[in-house]
Design a protein around this nucleic acid. Sequence first.
DNA 1: CCACGGATTGGCT
DNA 2: GCCAATCCGTGGA
Length: 203
Amino acid sequence: MLEELTSKKLPRSFYSRDVLQVATELLNKFLVKTIGTNLLIGKIVEVEAYKGASDQAAHTYNGKTERNKIMFGPAGFLYVYFTYGMHYCCNVVTGNPGEGDAVLIRGIEPVEGLEKMAQNRFGKINLTALQKKNLTNGPAKICKAFGIARQDNGTDLLGSKIFIADLMPGENKVIHSSTRIGIKKSVNLPWRYFIKDNPHVSN
DNA sequence: CCACGGATTGGCT
DNA sequence: GCCAATCCGTGGA
């Protein structure tokens, strides 16, 4: 299982492209986190692109700081930030070093490791229908379920700890786009992408 | 040095 | 539908 996943790991060249291109192509890919011999796997069904130079909503818009420096680094690394005093969200860095572009992962369909995700999110295994629906349909929920936090900021997605794999190449689902959620600047940019009718899309 | 508010969530009205 | 929770990075003084 892990060997097959590893063989389908996305290469650096996948991430080193325009952020909008990477964002749309991250849909239907599989986020993998290894915890010892256990695996957490989920299909990415909703993302948002943030583009440092031209996007006032991007954390990198006003230049490099201690907090956002990973976003200014090379593509294929994880940018994890802490917000609202209690939540973590994770992004995939794209493009060229110095650009400050990244894709926020906002919605995931659980595939493997359901019990571990449930335990991480709600502290129990048997979930109500509502809890199942709310397991990974939001950026901070995903981080909680996957156990992604501060210590994972700057993780190389070409390593073995956290990576993204193309398990079902050619799968052709309908992709929609819209404006982004929860921001107050650059509100009109249509840089949110999601798989139509998938129940694990937020909102 | 300090005040502000955020790429959110969940609980209560 | 509304709002509190809860922290720390950021930017202005």
